[in-house]
């Protein structure tokens, strides 16, 4: 693999005595589309939350775009990262949440333009134009002035995708983006994600239960179990001829 954009090196995450991520080694190449599947409690969402700096790690090293995520070089040694370092690192990443987490008191347009304006320092006009362009791209040209509660779940999640993209991240994290949606709304969200995967050189890390979708869009599928990567491979290989018993059991249960 060429220099990975994400690298986990013996990463450990614990909640008290419960080990959620157990000495995980894991890497993603720039532009790669990787899907993580696995039973609940396998630590797959935690991987994304750690990358988004929503969860701290207790051991190991994570590198994002060549720089340590949770550490920084100071006086020739690796120290725990400062707020400023985390802030800088976060800019590389965007996240789409299972529950959308849109700001309910802001219009779709404001949801998308708020951070570019406040964090990236874009002018009101530039932030607005960027937001409008993204909302058009996810098919919400007619819904820009609506508040989240005036939109369907599928539309809300598409705003969520536009909001994350507005920060121009190099890596997009999708945490079960369709799990909270009614079945008939899943398609419109997957269509947007699929288009992103096909048309952009974004690195994408996707946690999902949509196996057929995972198969279509990802370059690689990783099966997680009990805080470790149990098996990985090209989708056609992993889905048709898994080598591990655990993977076979899981796939049998969900397919």
């Amino acid at each position: 693999m060429t220099d990975p954009i994400i690298r986990f090196d013996k990463v450990v995450k614990r909640y008290g005595s419960l080990v959620v991520i157990n000495e995980l080694d894991f890497a993603v190449a720039p532009g790669e589309k990787v899907t993580i599947i696995g039973p609940s409690g396998s630590g797959k969402s935690t991987v994304l939350r750690i990358l988004m700096t929503l969860e701290k790690i207790q051991g190991g090293l994570i590198t994002v775009a060549g720089e340590p995520l949770w550490h920084e070089q100071k006086n020739g040694a690796l120290q725990p990262a400062s707020d400023a370092h985390l802030r800088k690192m976060r800019r590389t990443l965007g996240m789409v949440f299972q529950q959308f987490n849109l700001f309910p008191h802001m219009t779709a347009l404001r949801n998308v333009s708020e951070a570019p304006r406040q964090v990236l320092g874009l002018s009101r006009q530039d932030a607005r134009e960027r937001a409008e362009e993204l909302l058009r791209m996810v098919g919400l040209a007619d819904h820009m002035q609506k508040f989240p509660h005036q939109m369907s779940g599928g539309q809300q999640q598409r705003v969520g995708i536009a909001r994350a993209l507005a920060m121009r991240p190099r890596i997009m994290l999708f945490d079960e983006p369709t799990s909270a949606l009614d079945p008939e709304l899943v398609g419109e969200v997957l269509t947007v994600i699929r288009r992103l995967a096909e048309e952009h050189d974004l690195t994408m890390l996707l946690v999902t239960h949509e196996m057929r979708f995972a198969r279509e869009v990802s370059d690689r599928v990783c099966f997680f179990d009990r805080g470790r990567m149990c098996e990985e491979g090209k989708p056609e290989e992993l889905f048709t001829a898994p080598t591990q018993q655990r993977t076979r059991d899981f796939l049998k249960a969900v397919l």
């Binding site: 988004m52 700096t53 929503l54 802030r87 976060r90 800019r91 990443l93 965007g94 996240m95 949440f97 529950q99 987490n101 849109l102 700001f103 309910p104 008191h105 708020e114 951070a115 406040q118 964090v119 909001r163 994350a164 920060m167």
Partner: peptide, 27 residues
């Protein structure tokens, strides 16, 4: 105010102050 609101603001890199005044307090 649901925890997800702070997480979304965090992911977007909004400052603590901005998160409080424009995300948490209005809700």
């Amino acid at each position: 105010v649901p925890k997800g609101q702070r997480e979304a603001a965090h992911a977007l890199d909004l400052t603590t102050t901005r998160t409080f005044t424009h995300v948490i307090l209005p809700q």
